[in-house]
Computed example of a mutant assay.
Amino acid sequence: MKYGIYPGGRAGATCSRESDPRRVGELVDELTGGGPFVLREYVHFLGTRPDPAVVASIGAAGELDGLTMPDDWYVRDGRELDLVVSYLPAEADLPGWLGFLDRVIERYADITRYLQVTLEPNFPIPLIDGSSPGVLEALIAGLPHARRALDERGHDTVRIGFSVAEPAEWLGGDAAFWQRLAGADLSVVDYVGLGLYPDAFGPPVPVEGVRAMTEHALRHLREHSLVVAGIPAGTPIHVCENGSPSLPGRDQAASLEAMLAVVHEQAAALNITLYELFGLRDADTAGGEPVGALGLVTDEYQRKPAFDLYRRIVRVR
């Protein structure tokens, strides 16, 4: 199994300070010992005339100019870039979206290994793609469009997929989403990503509860949702986002250890090939909210106990 992380310091609209590339590089090297690693990054389509306030709130300005680190960093020392193209327009805009995919591919395909088309389109909450008008059409049309654009430019080794939040009962039900995909051509899908936060945004959960919720999410995706959509068992699952906050009354390291143990136990049976943590740095350590405290280090890059845990796991491989 491959491992990775989101190296930035933003979670949606939450970000207390800009990233420090020098510290990011040092910490990633410390996690990996200089070995192979996957780095997850995000760019956002906000429509052809995006609201400047929304652009500023999620830090989307200049995303086609550069990511957290310089381009060449993502392909040195066995690193691979997992690039998410998020769909967040205020109004449905399929032509604008497909044009944006072309621009992203033109800009970043040379350094990209995995290209994710939309972010959790089954999850209808603000600043997540499932809340956006026309998101299903954007996903269904965007996947083959991205494949053609990549192939035309000679990037046939870039893997294409999409991600979802699971399981359905956490979301109020997403049966209609999977049934709609069942009628689509998904032959270009190389992987399906899972956003997994079983104990992050509700009351604290005992470790055994975290284990049970993690296994249920993984099995529900493989054994129910993907079956409904007609996505075969040979299509890998990527745990593309996983996290637990470091807040009073919570043991971040124990929760992450429990979730990772389940992922490892189920990897062969469920065809899980990649695990990525969200994320390296807190978005806002002092804010007191779960979304701001998911990092392995604080927003001032001070290590938490979970940093050492993940370093041990990554280096064992």
Rank of each mutant, 00 (worst) to 15 (best):
R159L: 14
L46R: 04
A141V: 01
G59H: 12
V24K: 09
W170H: 14
G234S: 15
P203T: 09
A141I: 02
N271D: 10
I128N: 11
L296Q: 13
L143S: 10
C240T: 15
I231R: 07
L101G: 01
D308Q: 06
Y3I: 08
D156K: 00
G35R: 13
L88H: 14
D185Y: 14
G134W: 07
R312D: 14
H224N: 14
T214R: 00
V24M: 10
G8M: 00
A286G: 15
V55L: 11
D102T: 05
V228D: 09
L150V: 04
S57I: 06
R281L: 04
F37K: 07
S255Q: 11
T214H: 06
L247A: 00
I111P: 11
A217M: 02
L226T: 00
P206H: 10
S244D: 06
G4K: 02
S131R: 03
G34K: 03
I231G: 02
A306Y: 12
A254R: 07
I140A: 12
Y6S: 15
G4M: 03
G287A: 11
A286Y: 04
D93P: 08
R211F: 07
A212M: 02
P95R: 05
V85T: 14
Q116H: 02
A200W: 01
E223C: 02
V263T: 09
T235M: 03
L83D: 11
L294A: 06
T298D: 05
F177M: 02
L27C: 13
G154T: 02
R49A: 10
T235S: 07
E208G: 05
G25I: 03
G243T: 05
G279H: 10
E276K: 01
G288R: 04
F123Y: 15
R49I: 05
I125A: 12
G134P: 02
G25V: 07
R10C: 08
L81Q: 14
Y6N: 11
G33S: 01
G130I: 08
H44P: 05
G279T: 04
